[in-house]
């Protein structure tokens, strides 16, 4: 896997731009994801009903494909668990375990496949997390590509002078662990210098001003209220004693 200059990797969850959830507030999506995570505690009958509703929801939000991709990575584990549970306990239990795993594995794709880092930062601010924290988080995202380039350049530069330790086997790794500082020290130094350069550049542009305003804003829309209300209703129905 390779992180590109823009901080994206070939395995990064790609934003599903045409999903109706793209226009929803990140806080709503977070609530939605957490609520669905709770649903796994319910009984198998209710879980099966929920799974039907959830699948329809995924189709509507155009998130079925990324969710399936996510779950696909677990195919062997799921087959193994299903067979093992069926054999040792019961078919009901096997189905229950697999549905729980599928739900927990895919549910946060609702959030991460439909939210970009700027929206996450704005949501954190709305949740009263100080701007400095949201700002540093967004810098971390943006720096991925640059740091990745630097790490590769360090490896290359050290290998050109024969200073790249051999870590091709466990024992070589253990015996050469001290030599790994030829990678870690330059990486820490470069990262620190970058952090300092950003600090200076941000202060030179008035960072930390008490008058700061946000140009981009998040507003709760009708969709957000509908999603919140729908999720709450579903939770009540699923956990109601009937």
């Amino acid at each position: 896997m390779r992180i590109n200059r823009g901080g994206r990797s070939s395995r990064q969850l790609t934003l599903v731009e045409n999903s109706p959830l793209r226009s929803a507030d990140p806080r709503t999506k977070l609530f939605l994801s957490l609520a669905i995570s709770l649903v796994v505690m319910t009984s198998i009958e209710r879980l099966l009903i929920f799974l039907g509703v959830y699948l329809l929801f995924l189709v509507w939000t155009r998130l079925l494909s990324p969710t399936v991709q996510h779950v696909w990575r677990l195919k062997w584990l799921l087959i193994f668990l299903f067979a093992f549970d069926w054999w040792l306990i019961s078919l009901d239990h096997a189905v229950l375990i697999c549905i729980r795993l599928i739900l927990l594995t895919g549910v946060f794709a609702l959030f991460f496949s439909t939210t970009n880092t700027r929206e996450l930062g704005l949501a954190l601010e709305k949740l009263h997390i100080p701007y400095r924290y949201a700002f540093s988080l967004s810098l971390a995202f943006q720096s991925l590509g640059l740091l990745d380039d630097e790490w590769r350049a360090i490896r290359e530069a050290q290998s050109s002078r024969g200073a790249l330790p051999d870590s091709s086997s466990f024992w070589k790794l253990v015996t050469n662990v001290g030599d790994l500082i030829s990678l870690t020290v330059p990486a820490i130094v470069l990262t620190t210098k970058r952090a300092w350069a950003i600090t200076e550049a941000s202060y030179a542009r008035g960072f930390d001003s008490p008058h700061r305003v946000s140009y981009h804003t998040l507003e709760f829309s009708r969709l957000d209220f509908l999603l919140m209300a729908g999720t709450t209703l579903l939770l009540i129905l699923l956990f109601w004693r009937w």
């Binding site: 896997m1 390779r2 992180i3 990797s9 400095r132 924290y133 540093s136 988080l137 810098l139 971390a140 995202f141 720096s143 991925l144 740091l147 990745d148 790490w151 590769r152 490896r155 990486a187 820490i188 990262t191 620190t192 970058r194 952090a195 300092w196 950003i198 600090t199 941000s202 202060y203 960072f207 930390d208």
Partner: peptide, 20 residues
């Protein structure tokens, strides 16, 4: 602020190290 940015970049370094 410098410390926060530094910690954030160290976090990014963890991801990069894990991948690269």
């Amino acid at each position: 602020t410098f410390q926060l940015i530094l910690l954030a970049l160290f976090s990014a370094l963890i991801i990069v190290a894990k991948i690269a």
